[in-house]
């Protein structure tokens, strides 16, 4: 006991693709599975201890820290990583909003920030009765994702913009995404 090198088969749906995976080691976390075995390196390892949020992914629709999740315990789960968020070449509204609002600098925490934001908007509760999202609730809701570059103002603006776009999109026409790569500074 204790040195069992057993092969454990699990099934995961990763970015919509069902994958049969044989774990050679029960110690493997979802983060190390994605990064070292499935070549999905978008999720980042900043601390490996649930203290920075850089590894945030969505598991069955909720955001978690992939670094503290043993893969073997998530047999059957559906994972969404940053690589699966855009629709082909069309960015998800949150991705587009991060770009528009310069919600990052070095970009290392960005995949985690974006997935955390996607989940935060999905969780609801940011706004009252169809109003705009409360920036304070956005800031609190994004506080599990450290950004050492300090891009927090842009991140908050990005989530507010994406929330507005997604709320509007849900209510009205499908295409309300900000277009183009060259935007004039709003300030």
């Amino acid at each position: 006991m204790g040195l069992s090198i057993m092969s454990i088969p699990i099934t995961l749906t990763v970015n919509g693709v069902r994958r049969e995976i044989v774990l050679e080691d029960a110690r493997v976390t979802l983060l190390d599975l994605l990064r070292e075995r499935l070549d999905l390196t978008g999720a980042k390892k900043g601390c490996d201890r649930g203290q920075c949020g850089a590894c945030t992914i969505l598991v069955d629709g909720t955001r978690i820290n992939a670094c503290l999740a043993l893969a073997v315990s998530h047999d059957g789960a559906s994972l969404l990583t940053i690589e699966g968020l855009a629709d082909g070449d069309v960015l998800h509204p949150v991705q587009a909003a991060f770009l528009d609002n310069d919600g990052f600098q070095c970009g290392f925490c960005t995949p985690g920030q974006i997935l955390s934001a996607v989940a935060l908007i999905g969780e609801g509760g940011l706004a009252e009765e169809g109003g705009p999202a409360d920036p304070e609730r956005v800031r609190e809701g994004m506080s599990g994702n450290l950004c050492r570059c300090g891009a927090y103002a842009g991140i908050t603006q990005a989530v507010l913009q994406a929330h507005a776009a997604m709320t509007h999109a849900a209510m009205h026409a499908p295409d309300v995404l900000p277009g183009g790569n060259l935007t004039e500074d709003a300030a």
Partner: peptide, 9 residues
């Protein structure tokens, strides 16, 4: 407590 990510797990 903690963060939304940790609370979800």
């Amino acid at each position: 407590g903690a963060s939304a990510q940790l609370r979800n797990a």
